[in-house]
Amino acid sequence: MEIFLQQLVNGIVLGSIYSLVALGYTLVYGIMGLINFAHGDVVMIGAMVTLTVIRLLSGSGLPGPLVVLCGLGAAIPFCMMTGYLMERIAYRPLRNAPRLAPLITAIGVSILLQNVAMLIWGREYLSFPQLLPAHAFPFLGASISFIQILIVAGSGIMMACLSILIRKTRLGNAMRAASQNAEVATLMGVEVNSVISITFMLGSALAAVAGMMVSAYYGIAHYDMGFLLGLKAFTAAVLGGIGNMEGAMLGGLLLGIIESMGAGYLGTLTNGAMGSNYQDVFAFFVLILVLIFRPSGLLGERVGERP
């Protein structure tokens, strides 16, 4: 029972990070019908920029949490800029090209970001200094750390803000209109180009926060951390129903829980033949199963090729 609760807690924490990243995929997909392969790498850039600022400020005597906030304050605009440029340079010129073209440039952007990061920050794992309180609280036999609470609360707040933004503001209206039908939205006076730019920037801001959370949680950052994280977050978005915001949040949480339960119990289930080293495989099987049995995801529309 303790293992179960502990894995549940871990799963929810992991899941809230997935949700944040999955939202980035879903927002862009909802408006442009494009899978932005490079989104995971924006998360990585977020982590790297946060860490760079933290290292600069770590000798300054400022309190730890403030230093982390400063890092985040630098990472968010930096990632938004990255997202903006990415869309402007690599995707916008290809908006009316066949589907294959933007997919290939998206791969190109992802490779480019990873290798630029490797040139700047090197091949080694960067460690996240101990700036946030490390103590843990007991909870029904499981233990919850301060960082875990921070992650769940932080992503909850981010998602609530995003929901309000999309449901209650003019910008949100424009975004929803553009995702329904870009042509009609243009006729109605929506600046589709700027809506798309803003969507990329919003997704990238969420990615920056997720990047900070991941590196704080695991204590490390690495130039190719974005790849697997991106793949999993995409799976989460598909699981929930791509293009659907609530779906991305639900899918993220579910995937986090599935993964951490799987990692916790696989060893016992298979008598030690397979262990937590197969953790990364679960997301993929979930993806395949969803695509076979419910390609629309839990809350979404169909994704088949039919018009």
């Binding site: 494009l34 899978i35 392969f37 589907r99 294959l100 997919l103 697997l228 793949l231 995409f234 799976t235 598909v238 397979m274 080293n277 197969y278 990364d280 495989v281 997301a283 993929f284 993806l287 395949i288 695509l291 076979i292 390609p295 994704v303 088949g304 090729e305």
Partner: peptide
């Protein structure tokens, strides 16, 4: 067989995952 009826971009990501899975299995 299960993925080719989906749209092209899904195929891309499934094959991407498949490549990684094969590597994870080879490793373990």
């Amino acid at each position: 067989a299960p993925t080719l009826r989906l749209r092209g971009d899904y195929l891309a990501i499934v094959t991407l995952g498949f490549g990684e899975i094969i590597r994870i299995f080879l490793n373990n």
